[in-house]
């Protein structure tokens, strides 16, 4: 069932950039997605995508330094569930990200680099906004209409 929502709702979580906090992040995302009206399978997809994005922030943007923060914002309106993940770590050029060809990936027994592939596969939209020296923003969208198909 989709909750009828007249106005936009927002939720926020800010946690230190430590892998042990991934469990808290996942719980926040999953519960909010269920409350918004997604079924368990869809909520799990959003949960995994956000885990992948935050794991990348901890590993690549903050390079495992734990004295930083990850900010996670959720915005829900009548048509979509939007998760925005913000960090102040090292930036990157999103145009240089190449999605792996999974057939080749498996045949060559490669390791790593599957996070962004999962995010792009599981979410309807994934966008990056890199402001060098200031912050990096990952915005991921899941539309409710897919539930009605």
């Amino acid at each position: 069932m989709i909750t009828l929502r007249k106005k936009r709702e927002t939720f926020q979580l800010k946690v230190p950039s430590e892998t042990k906090n991934l469990e808290i992040i996942r719980s926040f995302i999953y519960r909010t997605a269920i409350k918004a009206g997604f079924d368990s399978e869809c909520a799990s997809r959003i949960e995994l995508s956000v885990d992948e994005a935050c794991s990348n922030v901890i590993k690549h943007a903050y390079q495992m330094k734990t004295d930083n923060f990850i900010e996670i914002n959720i915005s829900i309106d009548k048509e979509k569930f939007v998760v925005t993940i913000i960090d102040q770590g090292k930036g990157f050029n999103p145009e240089k990200i190449e999605l792996p060809d999974m057939m080749e990936y498996l045949a060559e027994l490669r390791v790593g680099g599957l996070g962004i592939y999962l995010m792009k596969t599981l979410m309807d939209e994934v966008e990056y906004d890199i402001i060098p020296g200031k912050k990096n923003i990952v915005r991921m969208v899941k539309y409710f209409y897919a539930l009605e198909e």
Partner: peptide, 14 residues
């Protein structure tokens, strides 16, 4: 629950 970090462990040893 498993994420790509968990899948990566299998790929690292196989």
């Amino acid at each position: 629950y498993i994420s790509s970090a968990g899948l990566g462990v299998f790929m690292g040893f196989i």
